[in-house]
Design a protein around this nucleic acid. Structure first.
Length: 971
RNA sequence: GCCCCCGUGGCCCAAUCGGCAGAGGCAGGCCCCUUAAAAGGGUCGCAGUGUGGGUUCGAGUCCCACCGGGGGCACCA
């Protein structure tokens, strides 16, 4: 532990320090005692209305409920630094305040413990991930306890507990057992789908029935395949993000924009593999629309909107000849475009290299005179296509980025027809068209699309402008607005239209009437890739039968326990080995991977799914489990879910009342959790529509770091400031600002700070530096200010020399009462808005006022001393408990009622208002607080300075705002 | 390139519905206490709110443009 010279020591007080001063040593003693007592007495046990945890509910039955939560931590071996507790303290202060203010507060904490870091750490240390993970959890739990947080420890759990992941698996089965009914706009059990298919009231959804034969004529296996293709959790072969360095596939959300893994920063390759997917796209519209009903920050909502990426436009079908001849239409290419209004300008088409039509559309040979730029130098189209596809699949996302937008592609030798012009359009494949978005094919309009323009330039393709660019336009694609040109045929004309929306509507109407397309909406959001080839995750509750089709493990056999293995590390490969294939660790456990089960048709052998779930699975629903983590009969009791999570008013989405966590989870965790919650809602397991009604992202704490003349970091704790310069061992160093950590040598831990000052000082300091949402610098030197405040509060109640309580039954003065009630109002406001810095400032003001009013030797009226203790209790709970007890109260201050401001003492008898002349302050006058506008004006005119100002001028207007000011407008 | 958030004393931050820019803390100056120092206490604020416009009787607050910082998205048709 590094200790800077300026930090106070915890050694016994020096001579000269009053014996009963609130010193760090005394703070330590008080804090440890109260933490023990809270645990012993179950002070923070939160009763449920019914069930196992309902003891003591009578006490809170008439209280409103509040569910307050942090994003639970992922216990890494590195331990906490001073930045980590910020959010935990914010929720702690809030929950303590709400409890005192008469609410039944649920404030739990759990641990997110499956996932790559634990596994990688375990691989390094050679220990089973469970051992290291549990040790890390114990360490972080001890740190949180030492901070004095008020979690109900009976409700804690980790995602790796079999009693927890049993229900994660159960939810998976519910999702597996459901499909999305597009007409109803919600998930329903697949049994209902099968019943409707059997009854003939429903046909298989498009794309789910490859044979195309009627349902009734399908074999049992075919029927199961059709049903499986409807499920919300389904197996799918598609290009996925394969990360050889990690030995696993990753979701889109886990891949950075430059094509690397978010964890570990390894290259990621696109590779077709069969994987479990979650049909989150079915919920795109609801996930987007319901953002408007959430109390979240604009930035997080914006990020989710971007990620969902809704765009409206049209699907347009283009006829294309099988042999490459437009007069022999054998196939149809369907494209998505947001600009159907530019259809007259479409001069060629592009398919993604992986598009399913590529093979059928590829011509036998190049026609004579084919532009050499179109062939990729190959002798035949088939050869060109094969080579281009190979390059595209090999190419990592990173490489694509590096080629800095130089357009590549080859012609298929095929030609499509523009339905509105009859023009023949060459069909290319190019990797600037993406498989997963829209239909994986585009109509290219070089005149109005920058990418198409670049491609047309490179390939010598024609450009037809359909939007008139302004006169000073200097060429290239024109993406702005303007009058439509070159856009008419016998049936439809857009020429002259200036409003893009009109043009789009008219063209779309024509497409529909002519049978060439329709209006549609697409999303950037893709389905969620849900399987990982790792050991340290939840096993899937799925087995495969002799037909190779998935079967659900019966709920009675949950949890499917993660087997013990000798070798839990995944098979990884060279970072850039794009052709490698995943090998899940569980597949090597032969005795586990096959199992005999009776799934209703006799005992048969089955093969287990050997993938595991991604880290996000456990965090998708943990908030529900806090309600009763010990319930082994159900995921969550519906009655308790209604109590803690249910909508408060009609139309309310329900959910956790306050959820605090880092901005880094704005998309991944929060989108996945919302998706699962909506599925559970649709299936009737939860009454709330959203998991988190109110979300607050706490800011980050950064710290100064220092480099010497060589550019190396020096220990920040040993740098001293002198005359505005920074010195390390006497030599000047350069100050930087950045993340707290070992690499910048500016690590400061809560343990150090608590050791030097106590937890209460640390809490007050962290909360005093700004609103919860704000990022801020750490400044160890400034912590002493918070300690001084707590010392002054202590001194208001306790005589430093004798230790006697100074509070007495004397009557406080009016000034002190006014100060008290102003402080109460201010502290409440700060608490409600999570601006604890303001609350602390109000406490400091009150403390200073009381210190000034009642010198060291005079008693302090109980009527003001006790509310002061209550006001500071959520912020410095140990100090408050100790003072509360010394003031003669037997019960914990945690349950004492929070003071309420009396309006009578908030209003001043007289107020000073400014008198302005033409907006400039010219005088101050004292008036009764309730003086109306006329009285204000009269008082102002009576002031001689004002009278002098107005003497020779015409008053054109008088603005008098009661209680604030008077403004004379003169001319 | 597009989108979102933020710019207030040396530093961290307050400022209600648009109504006198300063509550609280750090640092600094001065004073008290002390033999002295530390600790403690008291006291001290000439920034007009990133820049330039606009609306208004009045703008830190609302509008526009720009500058600076942070974040997100980005070949998404």
């Amino acid at each position: 532990m590094s200790q800077t010279a300026s930090q106070p020591t915890t050694e016994p007080a020096d001579e000269g320090v009053p014996p009963h001063r609130y010193t760090p040593a005394l703070a330590q003693r008080i804090e440890l005692e109260w933490q023990d007592r809270w645990e012993r007495e179950g002070t923070f046990h939160t009763p449920n209305p019914t069930g196992r945890l309902s003891e003591g509910f009578d006490r809170v039955a008439d209280r409103p409920k509040t569910f307050i939560m942090d994003m639970f931590p992922y216990p890494s071996g590195a331990g906490l630094h001073v930045g980590h507790p910020l959010g935990y303290l914010g929720t702690d202060v809030t929950s303590r305040f709400r409890r005192m203010d008469g609410e039944n507060v649920l404030h739990p904490m759990g641990y997110d413990a499956f996932g790559l870091p634990a596994e990688q750490y375990a691989v390094q240390t050679g220990q089973h991930p469970r051992i290291t993970t549990e040790a890390n959890i114990a360490a972080i739990r001890a740190q949180l306890r030492r901070l004095g947080v008020d979690h109900d420890e009976r409700r804690t759990f980790a995602t790796i507990d079999p009693g927890y992941y049993r229900w994660t698996q159960w939810i998976f089965l519910k999702i597996f057992g459901a499909w999305f009914d597009e007409e109803a706009g919600r998930a329903r059990p697949v049994e209902e789908l099968v019943a409707e298919l059997d009854a003939g009231t429903r046909s298989p959804a498009p794309g789910t029935n490859p044979s195309g034969r009627p349902w009734a004529e399908l074999s049992d296996v075919e029927k199961r395949q059709v049903v499986d293709a409807h499920r919300l959790a389904y197996r799918h072969e598609a290009p996925v993000n394969w990360c050889p360095g990690l030995g696993t596939v990753l979701s889109n959300e886990e891949v950075t924009p430059d094509g690397r893994s978010e964890r570990g920063n390894f290259p990621v390759f696109r590779r077709p593999l069969t994987q479990w997917m979650m049909r989150i796209t079915a919920y795109a519209e609801r996930l987007l629309a319901d953002l408007d009903r959430l109390d979240w920050s604009d930035s997080v909502k914006q990020m989710q909107r971007n990620w969902i990426g809704r765009s409206t436009g049209a699907r347009i079908r283009f006829a294309v000849g099988a042999a490459g001849r437009a007069d022999d239409p054998a196939e149809t290419i369907e494209v998505f475009t947001t600009r159907p209004d530019t259809l007259f300008g479409a001069t060629y088409m592009v398919l993604a290299p992986e598009h399913p039509l590529v093979e059928t559309l590829t011509a036998q040979a190049w026609p004579d005179g084919t532009d050499p730029r179109w062939t990729g130098g190959a002798a035949t189209p088939a050869e060109a296509v094969r080579e281009y596809q190979r390059q595209a699949s090999r190419r990592s996302e990173l490489d694509r980025q590096n080629e800095s937008r130089e357009k590549t592609g080859v012609w298929l030798g095929a030609t499509a027809v523009n339905p509105v012009t009859g023009r023949e359009l060459p069909v290319f494949i190019a990797d600037y068209v993406l498989t997963g978005y829209g239909t994986g094919a585009i109509m290219a309009v070089p005149g109005e699309d920058t990418r198409d323009w670049e491609f047309a330039e490179a390939f010598g393709l024609p450009v037809v402008r359909t939007v008139q660019p302004p006169a000073d336009f200097d060429g290239g694609a024109y993406t702005g607005s303007g009058p439509m040109i070159n856009s008419s045929n016998e049936q439809v004309s857009l020429d002259g239209l200036t409003d893009k929306a009109d043009a789009i509507a008219r063209m779309t109407a024509w497409l529909v009437s002519a049978g060439h397309g329709e209006a549609t909406t697409t999303y950037k959001l893709r389905d969620w890739l849900f399987s990982r080839q790792r050991y340290w995750g939840e096993p899937f509750p799925v087995v495969y039968d002799a037909d190779g089709l998935p079967r659900a493990v019966p709920e009675s056999l949950l949890p499917v326990l993660l087997p013990e293995v000798d070798d839990y590390s995944p098979k990884t490969f060279a970072d850039d080995d794009a052709d490698s294939a995943p090998e899940p660790p569980l597949s090597r456990v032969a005795e586990w991977a096959t199992v005999e089960l009776d799934l209703g048709d006799g005992l048969k052998p089955y093969r287990r799914e050997t993938n595991t779930m991604p880290n996000w699975a456990g965090s998708c629903w943990y908030y529900l489990r806090y309600i009763d983590p010990g319930d082994d009969t159900q995921m969550v009791d519906p009655e308790l879910e209604r109590y803690w999570m249910g909508p408060r008013t009609p139309g309310d989405v329900g959910g956790v009342d306050l959820y605090v966590g880092g901005m880094e989870h704005a998309v991944l965790h929060l989108l996945y959790a919302r998706f699962w919650h909506k599925v559970l809602h649709d299936l009737g397991y939860v009454s709330s529509e959203e998991p988190f009604r109110r979300l607050v992202n706490q800011g980050y704490i950064s710290a100064y770091a220092y480099t010497d003349e060589r550019g190396f970091y020096v220990p920040a704790a040993d740098v001293v400031e002198q005359d505005g310069r920074f010195l390390y061992e006497g030599r000047p160093v350069n100050r930087e600002y950045g993340k707290i950590g070992k690499s910048l040598k500016n690590m400061v831990t809560p343990d150090e700070m608590i050791g030097a000052y106590g937890a209460d000082t640390f809490r007050v300091y962290e909360m005093s530096t700004g609103p919860l949402e704000q990022s801020r610098p750490w400044d160890t030197k400034a912590v002493v200010g918070s300690q001084r405040l707590l010392q002054r509060i202590w001194r208001v109640v306790v005589d430093e020399q004798t230790g006697a309580v100074r509070a007495a039954d004397a009557a406080p003065g009016d000034d002190e009462l006014r100060a008290l009630h102003r402080a109460i109002a201010g502290v409440r406001d700060g608490m409600a808005t999570l601006r604890f810095n303001v609350a602390i400032a109000r406490v400091a003001e009150l403390t200073n006022a009381l210190t000034a009013a009642y010198g060291a030797d005079s008693p302090v009226p109980r009527e003001v001393a006790e509310p002061l203790v209550l006001l500071v209790a959520p912020l410095a709970p140990h100090l408050a408990e100790e003072l509360w007890a010394r003031l003669g109260h037997a019960d914990s201050v945690a349950w004492a009622p929070f003071p309420v401001a009396d309006e009578r003492w908030l209003a001043e008898d007289t107020v000073q208002v400014a008198v302005q002349v033409n907006g400039k302050v010219r005088a101050q006058v004292d008036v009764p607080a309730d003086a109306d506008a006329a009285a204000l004006e009269a008082a102002a005119r009576a002031d001689e300075r004002v009278a002098a100002q107005l003497a020779d001028k015409t008053v054109r207007r008088v603005i008098a705002v009661p209680g604030r000011l008077v403004n004379f407008v003169v001319g």
